[in-house]
């Protein structure tokens, strides 16, 4: 059964490997160039001498020019955010829906293997492909993003979404959603569409409605002279809201933020939520496969 599951997952695995290889050629080269630019623009030495984004603005501008020339002005990071979900959807959805459509489920389910075992084998093998591919993608994205972290940190949404353990959680949630929608919708095209839409819904709800509330954000506010140490992306803080009034208006300047040391707590919480969603969907898939007819 294991060999069969692997053989049936192989095309998806090859696709995932091709995706990783394609990403690697771009991200490794771009990451390397950015690292070199950190040095050549003098940004690294300016920052390590205790400078901030404001005081090193010339060097930062030069660095961003290099970044833009590499990306051609495209928001590459925003595209990379989509990858975990797409990976999960395209590996997870076909597992059941393709077999239902091609009638091969009737072949698979009349071998001397119970449906439960069959499903476990298919999900574990395909799930491993997702995990391995996603870990490789995360490593590549982290390498590429490293130099930008120096300026923007990794806690603001774009950096947060492509680094750490959160991408893996989203890949697994998309994978499980694909499997479940596949067995319930039973037709490929709508199954893919519904899975993608469902995935983005889950992602938007977590990112925009839940993430900011994992822990109560901290607030700094002042009138007149600013404190010497302010929360900033370069320190790894997530600046959620900045209220800067007109100078001389008498209103305080307010910064609401999540401090850098909460990064892994947030990542762990978000991974927990996405894995719980995945587990629920996988459980529902089992229930469906066992109770429902093919």
């Amino acid at each position: 059964m294991t060999w069969t599951s692997w053989r049936l997952t192989r095309p998806a695995a090859i696709g995932a490997a091709a995706l990783v290889a394609l990403l690697a050629t771009y991200l490794v080269a771009a990451g390397h160039t950015l690292r070199a630019a950190l040095d050549s623009t003098g940004l690294l030495s300016c920052l390590s001498a205790g400078g901030s984004r404001q005081t090193c603005s010339d060097q930062a501008a030069a660095f961003y020019r290099t970044l833009n020339s590499l990306t051609g002005g495209q928001p590459v990071a925003a595209y990379l955010v989509l990858l975990p979900g797409l990976l999960g959807v395209f590996v997870g959805t076909p597992i059941l829906v393709r077999e239902i459509e091609s009638g091969t489920l009737r072949l698979a389910w009349t071998q001397s293997v119970t449906r439960t075992r069959w499903l476990t084998s298919r999900l574990v093998i395909a799930g491993l492909v997702v995990v391995v591919a996603q870990l490789a993608i995360t490593l590549l994205m982290t390498y590429w993003r490293g130099p930008v972290n120096m300026l923007d940190g990794r806690f603001e949404p774009t950096g947060y979404n492509i680094q750490g353990i959160v991408p893996l959680g989203y890949a697994l949630a998309a994978f499980a959603l694909g499997a479940f929608v596949g067995v319930t919708v039973r037709r490929s095209a709508p199954a893919f569409a519904i899975t993608l839409a469902g995935y983005f819904l889950i992602r938007l709800v977590i990112e925009n409605m839940l993430r900011g509330r994992f822990m109560t954000p901290l607030t700094v506010s002042w009138v007149g002279h600013a404190p010497t140490v302010l929360p900033s992306g370069a320190h790894g803080d997530w600046l959620m809201e900045q209220d800067i009034p007109k100078p001389g208006s008498g209103y305080p300047t307010v910064i609401i933020y999540q401090p850098a040391d909460r990064f892994w707590t947030f990542q762990a919480l978000e991974l927990g939520i996405t894995v719980a969603i995945a587990a629920t969907l996988i459980t529902l898939t089992y229930v469906w496969v066992r109770r429902r007819s093919h």
Binding site: S102, R106, W109
Partner: peptide, 24 residues
């Protein structure tokens, strides 16, 4: 039927469209 591997092993079933994994 189909509740255990042993029960499944006793029956050979062939659907009308002779389904096969076409890529294999």
């Amino acid at each position: 039927p189909a509740t255990s591997a042993a029960a499944l092993a006793q029956v050979g079933y062939l659907a009308q469209d002779h389904p096969l994994y076409r890529g294999l």
